[in-house]
Simulated scan of single mutants.
Amino acid sequence: VNTDMLNQSSSTEEEVAWCRQQRSPEDFAAAVGPFILSLGLEDTGRNLVAPGCPESYYQTGVAYKDRPAWANGFGPFCPAREDEPPGKKPRTSEGRPRKYFISGVMLASKKKLKEDEGLVPQNYRQQIADALRKADPAAVVVDPLEAVKARAARSGVTIVDWNKDDAAVKSAFNDVVDMVRECDVIVSNLPEASMGSAVELWEARRAGLKIFTISPMADNWMLRSVT
């Protein structure tokens, strides 16, 4: 943090220049203050890195015997509330065919779902399915869009008709999220942000699925947290 004390301790022009590149006290307080206030008794003894600090400044903690990684040296800040549930293990197919969930942008940021202004192009779904089956001939591919279309068809309506009924939308969305939890792998195509896909990916993380994302949004925190 670029404080007066830090500047006074600098003896060369290079050190002074380095100090000026650091965050101001105001920026530091704005970023770190809420983080500190969010900590609880369960975080006692943890080595936590303040938000915004370069990872290169710290040595990643390494688990040793019965001591978890966060108790050995410095590591990326991880308060107790972000711990993985106890006993959680990666999902495996255990000899059965793997189930792959195809996630991705549908409506995107469009405000309305209309007959003449439908979903964004969905051809990526078939492309992903083809690639999965080529890599894993026994793959069971779960496409939520096809599942929702089939459900609407059984009711004698289209997705656009169904979209007018809040209860139907809620039920269908919950069913899609349930489908995620039953799979082993999720592949999400996100050329742009998608609120529905974000929920799918977060649930996939909670359920222990292997997660792959295809996206140009390299700085998106949610994608970086789950992929």
Rank of each mutant, 00 (worst) to 15 (best):
G156D: 12
K88E: 14
Q8T: 12
R224P: 08
L209D: 01
M106R: 09
I128G: 05
R206I: 09
W70H: 14
M195H: 11
D66W: 09
P121M: 02
F101L: 03
I214L: 05
R98L: 06
T158E: 03
L190S: 00
G52I: 04
G45N: 06
P97S: 10
S225Y: 08
A167T: 12
A150C: 06
R98Q: 10
A193F: 08
Y57Q: 07
D66K: 11
G52A: 05
A153M: 06
A153T: 02
T60R: 13
L113A: 07
S194Y: 02
R81A: 12
N47E: 04
D143P: 01
P54V: 09
A167S: 14
A207C: 06
R206W: 05
E115I: 14
V120C: 13
Y64L: 11
L223F: 13
G61N: 03
G104N: 00
M5Q: 14
V142M: 15
R20I: 09
V49I: 13
N163R: 03
K65M: 10
W202A: 06
K114R: 15
N174H: 12
M5I: 13
L201G: 00
W162V: 12
L37V: 15
M217C: 05
A29C: 07
D43V: 03
K111N: 15
K65W: 05
L209M: 08
D219H: 09
R23Q: 07
V176H: 02
A71V: 08
E26P: 01
C78T: 12
W18S: 00
E203Q: 11
Q59H: 11
P68C: 07
R205S: 12
N174C: 08
S38N: 14
K114V: 10
S109W: 08
R23H: 03
W221V: 14
M5R: 09
D161Q: 11
L107C: 07
G33N: 00
D4K: 13
A50I: 13
D166F: 11
P90A: 12
F77S: 12
N189E: 10
G118R: 03
G156P: 10
L223G: 02
W70T: 07
Q22E: 07
A153R: 02
A29K: 10
G73R: 05
G75T: 08
P25Q: 06
D27H: 04
P90Y: 11
A207Q: 01
V142G: 06
E13V: 10
P25I: 08
G104L: 00
V32H: 01
W70P: 01
T12G: 05
K88V: 13
V32S: 05
G33H: 04
K134I: 06
M217D: 07
Q122D: 05
S109A: 14
K134P: 00
D83Y: 09
P85I: 15
Q127V: 09
P97F: 04
N7M: 05
V180C: 08
